[in-house]
Simulated assay, not measured.
Amino acid sequence: MRDFDRKLDDRGLEEAIAMGKLMGKRHLVPDLVICSTAARAVQTLDGINETLHLNDVTRYDQKLYATDAPGYLEIAAAAESDGDIMLVGHNPMMEDAAIALSRTGEDHALDALQMGFRTGGLAVIRFDGPASSFTTETGHLEAYLTPNDA
């Protein structure tokens, strides 16, 4: 089986559902979702959608599977959205992008992110201005959440 087609195991699906519940509880509902077309990314979003129902604000982009962290930033910037954007992608690109963007942040969130971007993790990074102005070291890491926080 190709890596692109690899599916989540039962634990991964449970964690995606838990993350959706946690996001709802904390009112972390994005205005736009850009999701990789790889099977496990789509399944992750499906699990989140059991609570958040983001289908109407979701775009799928196969480039998230094969690009690097700067590519993730380019994809977010090209979204032309002034709202909150959530990327559903892959490591190590997600971790690299989150670290590169987070110039400042809550100490516990920065420490947790430095330990590695866990499967099913969510970095909540705030910016001043629209996604088109995202550059490295311009964000503030407000939280780093994992399914264990649910």
Rank of each mutant, 00 (worst) to 15 (best):
Met1His: 10
Met1Trp: 02
Asp3Arg: 13
Asp5Leu: 00
Arg6Trp: 04
Arg6Gly: 00
Lys7Phe: 02
Gly12Lys: 00
Gly12Trp: 00
Ala16Trp: 01
Ile17Trp: 09
Met19Thr: 15
Gly20Tyr: 07
Gly24Asn: 07
Lys25Arg: 15
Lys25Asn: 14
Arg26Ala: 09
Leu28Phe: 06
Val29Arg: 13
Pro30Tyr: 14
Val33Tyr: 09
Val33Asp: 13
Val33Glu: 14
Ile34Leu: 12
Ala38Thr: 08
Ala41Ile: 06
Val42Cys: 03
Gln43Tyr: 04
Gln43Ala: 02
Thr44Arg: 01
Asp46Val: 05
Asp46Thr: 07
Gly47Ser: 05
Asn49Gln: 03
Glu50Tyr: 05
Glu50Pro: 00
Thr51Phe: 11
His53Gly: 04
His53Lys: 14
His53Glu: 05
His53Cys: 02
Leu54Lys: 04
Leu54Ala: 03
Val57Ser: 12
Tyr60Glu: 05
Asp61His: 10
Gln62His: 08
Lys63Met: 11
Tyr65Ile: 08
Thr67Tyr: 12
Asp68Phe: 08
Asp68His: 11
Ala69Met: 10
Pro70Ile: 12
Leu73Glu: 07
Leu73Thr: 11
Ala76Met: 15
Ala77Thr: 02
Ala77Asp: 04
Ala78Ser: 15
Ser81Lys: 12
Asp82Thr: 07
Asp82Gln: 13
Ile85Glu: 05
Ile85Cys: 06
Met86Pro: 14
Leu87Gly: 12
Val88Phe: 02
Val88Arg: 08
Gly89Asp: 05
His90Gln: 06
His90Gly: 10
Met93Asn: 14
Met93Thr: 13
Asp96Arg: 08
Asp96Ser: 12
Ala97Val: 12
Ala98Gln: 01
Ile99Glu: 00
Leu101Trp: 00
Leu101Val: 03
Ser102Met: 08
Ser102Pro: 00
Arg103Met: 03
Thr104Phe: 00
Asp107Gly: 00
Asp107Cys: 00
Leu110Asn: 03
Asp111Gln: 15
Leu113Tyr: 01
Phe117Met: 11
Phe117Glu: 01
Arg118Val: 13
Gly120Phe: 01
Gly121Leu: 09
Gly121Met: 11
Leu122Pro: 04
Leu122Lys: 09
Leu122Asp: 06
Ala123Cys: 08
Val124His: 10
Ile125Thr: 06
Ile125Phe: 06
Arg126His: 15
Asp128Asn: 11
Gly129Asp: 08
Pro130Arg: 08
Pro130Phe: 02
Ser132Pro: 02
Phe134Arg: 13
Thr135Met: 05
Thr136Trp: 14
Thr138Lys: 15
Gly139Met: 07
Leu141Tyr: 04
Glu142Cys: 04
Glu142Trp: 06
Ala143Pro: 09
Tyr144Ala: 14
Tyr144Gly: 10
Leu145Glu: 08
Leu145Ser: 06
Pro147Met: 07
Pro147Cys: 06
Asp149Met: 09
